[in-house]
């Protein structure tokens, strides 16, 4: 039941402008949305339409030009461990091992060694990287690096997890595998998740709710609730029908 109490993140009339070469470009226009507790929400939209900027604003890394973001009635003023992010590009600390990366947040919070090692180990095992604790990121494949990023984000017990096209650089099959993994991980450790993607199969596979975005300036085009069980079948008739419907309404990628 959706009510004010279980809204994890709320933002109202968000817009963002960038000034380049004397011109002002409006990247986000009048965005209002609610994410509810334990929801898996997917932001889906074409190309480079400002999805990363939305994540940056909601997680506190950037501030909006207008509007405000609230997490559980508290205004979001900056980045922090309550709003964890899994990035698309290289974001692991290359001079730290897998364990060093995963326990980073707990270490920064001053949690003592044995406790934080134990928690980090649980998550390293959960994402399927048992045995790789002492490996450096440069010896891991892309999929494995993303798993470390996920474990690292989960480790700080955030109330919301943002995932910014985390599987964008992976090949089609590894991507299918990681999508399955996310469903499995989330069933073991349920979180509120806002997941960004430009891949329609991924969106429908993962989402409880899909928010379809416009092109620049970005705003919400339409929302779809997907109340099917998980894991889902990419070639199921209802899956393909929904895919066709969303594809037909979405903007052209520039």
């Amino acid at each position: 039941m959706e009510s004010k109490e279980n809204i994890a993140i709320h933002c109202e009339n968000i817009s963002k402008e960038f000034a380049t070469k004397g011109k002002k470009i409006r990247v986000i226009d009048n965005l209002t949305l609610n994410i509810y507790d334990n929801e898996f929400v997917v932001l889906y939209g074409p190309g480079q339409c400002g999805k990363t900027t939305i994540i940056n604003i909601l997680s506190g890394l950037e501030s909006p030009s207008t509007g405000e973001v609230y997490q559980k009635n508290e205004k979001v003023m900056g980045p922090g461990p309550q709003r964890a992010v899994v990035y698309q590009s290289i974001s692991l600390f290359p001079w730290l091992t897998v364990m060093g990366n995963v326990e980073f947040g707990l270490r920064a919070a001053g949690i003592e060694t044995s406790k934080r090692r134990q928690r980090a180990q649980e998550l390293i095992d959960l994402v399927g990287l048992h045995g790789f604790e002492n490996a450096f990121p440069n010896s891991l494949s892309g999929g494995m690096q993303q798993r470390v990023g996920i474990a690292r984000a989960y480790c700080i017990a955030p109330s919301i997890l943002f995932m910014d096209e985390p599987f964008g650089a992976l090949d089609a099959q590894t991507r299918y595998m990681m999508e399955q993994e996310i469903i499995r991980i989330n069933s073991k450790e349920k979180r509120t998740i806002l997941f960004v993607t430009n891949n329609i199969e991924e969106a429908i596979y993962l989402a409880d709710r899909i928010i379809v975005l416009n092109n620049c300036p970005t705003s919400i085009k339409k929302e779809y609730k997907v109340e099917w069980g998980k894991p889902r079948d990419y070639t199921d008739k209802k899956f393909l029908d929904l895919r066709e419907e969303i594809t037909s309404i979405v903007d052209e990628t520039p």
């Binding site: 074409p46 190309g47 090949d171 089609a172 430009n198 891949n199 329609i200 199969e201 594809t247 979405v250 052209e252 990628t253």
Partner: peptide, 11 residues
């Protein structure tokens, strides 16, 4: 060899 793997599904 995978000429479209970097692109959006719609594209």
């Amino acid at each position: 060899d995978e000429p479209y793997s970097q692109l959006d599904l719609n594209l």
